[in-house]
Amino acid sequence: MAVVHMRIDNRLIHGQVTTTWVGNIGADYLVVTNDKVANDPVQKMLLPQAARGVPTKVLSIKDTLNFVKSAEAQKGKVMIVAKLPTDALTLLEDGLQPAEINVGNQAPVPGTKFKMVTHSIAVTAADAEVYRAIAAKGYTLTCKMMPSDRPTDFLEALKKNKL
């Protein structure tokens, strides 16, 4: 079955993901993908514990691509949580084809010139280019905190904020 949902959320695994998103989309596996996080032994240990029993992997971009092609992943539904928009774009450029992409929380990075596009999504000009590159691959980017929220077209939110 493979990747049914990709969420770009720099909080990674938290209550909204494990209690609402995973259940709503029926994910059998949760994959956190980011090269730096995958090389952090503390996060590799803690993130699966935060998933509250959902089978969870914390993987590099390359290992994420290998996992979603595996027989194990093909038997179920995979939800990917990409820490950064650049992580998501790299996965797409390397052939990942999620059924949908949602932009979740992106906290502001201190020292960067960002605009708050929503109350929980900070975007720099460079980030906006990455989001447009994702959309150029044929994806409609939505933003919503909870699955039951009405989706907002994320590119429209960028335009509204002059990004």
Rank of each mutant, 00 (worst) to 15 (best):
M1R: 10
M1A: 14
V4Q: 00
V4I: 12
M6R: 07
M6F: 07
R7N: 02
N10V: 10
L12A: 08
G15S: 12
G15W: 05
G15N: 09
V17Y: 00
V17L: 00
T18Q: 01
T19W: 07
W21E: 03
V22A: 15
G23Q: 09
G23K: 15
G23W: 02
G23M: 06
N24G: 11
N24M: 08
I25Y: 13
I25P: 01
G26Y: 14
Y29L: 05
L30S: 11
K36G: 06
A38Y: 13
A38C: 14
D40Y: 04
V42R: 07
Q43C: 11
Q43M: 15
Q43R: 15
L46Q: 14
A50Y: 13
R52T: 10
R52G: 06
G53I: 07
K57R: 15
V58H: 06
V58Q: 07
L59F: 13
S60A: 04
S60C: 08
I61A: 06
I61V: 15
N66W: 00
V68N: 04
K69Y: 08
S70F: 08
A71P: 13
E72N: 09
Q74N: 13
K77S: 11
K77T: 06
K77G: 11
K77Y: 09
A82D: 02
A82Y: 00
P85R: 06
T86V: 15
D87F: 09
T90V: 13
G95K: 13
G95D: 12
L96S: 12
L96Y: 12
L96D: 10
P98C: 09
E100T: 12
G104R: 03
G104Q: 04
N105T: 04
A107I: 09
A107Y: 11
A107E: 12
P108E: 04
P110M: 06
P110N: 08
G111N: 11
G111D: 08
T112E: 14
K113C: 00
K115G: 08
H119L: 05
S120Q: 08
S120K: 07
V123F: 05
A126N: 10
D127A: 00
A128T: 04
A128P: 06
A128W: 02
V130Q: 06
Y131C: 03
Y131D: 01
R132I: 00
R132N: 03
A133S: 14
A133W: 02
A133T: 03
I134L: 00
A136H: 09
K137R: 15
K137S: 09
Y139G: 02
Y139F: 10
T140C: 01
T140G: 05
M146I: 13
P147E: 11
P147I: 07
P147S: 10
S148I: 15
D149W: 03
R150W: 00
T152M: 05
T152K: 05
F154Q: 01
L155I: 10
E156V: 06
E156P: 03
L158C: 12
L158H: 11
K159Y: 01
K160H: 08
K162Q: 11
